[in-house]
């Protein structure tokens, strides 16, 4: 099967095993710019592994992943790291903010890793924190802010490099529904405004409802519900 024309990131026939456990068994995926796709499925279905493969964090055992016309398998670790630094953004469930850096330093971190000067990085970081309504937390450390605030800081950090793909793995998993909703609203709005694609791993329907379409992952196989119909 070939990826649909115009897709930004596409994968086919992905296989990945961890020891005796088969995490992915022929999974497929595709997303185009500006689209929000939810990866759904029960725990252990392989949805996080699929996200890690798509983001170039994990190398699949077999199959191909093409990002912007480039086959990921041909890139080495440094190139994939560089890709993650500049083209991708990440939000995880928790434990992603560096506890000893202030919030604004955390948000500025990806820019600094890309070689932007500290001053400029922090200015851009503050802009994004403003968009996510957490600019007043700049000088605080992650330990001093609430879970919802921390997650918004994390979203700001994921978007600060204006990535073309934003990977979000259970971004609201540790939040209550009101905070979760707000984070999802801000995340999808921000992503749409920059025409970024969003790969959203979630097991919550109400979170998945922020997506344009969903892909169900079960036993390492994926099912694109839109194209199946």
């Amino acid at each position: 099967m070939n990826a649909p024309a115009g897709s930004l990131l596409a994968a086919e026939a992905l296989r990945k095993t961890y020891g005796p456990t088969v995490a992915l068994d022929g999974a497929e995926f595709s997303i185009h710019a500006g689209e929000v796709v939810a990866l759904m499925g029960p725990s252990g279905s392989g949805k996080s592994t699929l996200l890690h493969c798509l983001a170039g964090i994990v190398t699949p055992d077999a199959g191909s992943i093409v990002y912007a016309g480039r086959e990921m398998a041909t890139m080495n670790d440094a190139e994939r790291s560089a890709l993650r630094r500049s083209e991708f953004g990440f939000v995880f469930q928790f434990g992603q903010l560096v506890p000893e850096l202030t919030c604004v330093e955390n948000v500025a971190l990806p820019l600094r890793l890309n070689g932007t000067s500290r001053k400029e990085a922090e200015r851009t970081a503050l802009d994004w924190m403003q968009r996510l309504e957490v600019d007043d937390l700049g000088r605080k450390r992650p330990g001093e802010v609430s879970g919802g605030q921390g997650q918004r800081v994390a979203v700001a950090r994921a978007l600060v490099t204006s990535p073309r793909v934003l990977f979000a793995d259970e971004p609201t998993g540790a939040l209550d529904s009101l905070n979760g909703e707000r984070v999802m609203e801000l995340l999808t709005e921000a992503a749409r405004s920059t025409n970024a694609a969003v790969v959203l791993v979630t097991h919550e329907a109400r979170v998945a409802a922020y997506s344009d379409r969903e892909i169900v992952v079960r036993d390492g196989k994926s099912r694109d519900m839109e194209r199946a119909v």
Binding site: A205, R206, A208, A209, S211, E214, R223, M225, E226, A228
Partner: peptide, 14 residues
């Protein structure tokens, strides 16, 4: 799965 998809479609609209 198709039922879930149908449900999600409604949820997206809501």
């Amino acid at each position: 799965d198709s039922q879930r998809s149908e449900h999600l479609r409604s949820m997206r609209i809501l």
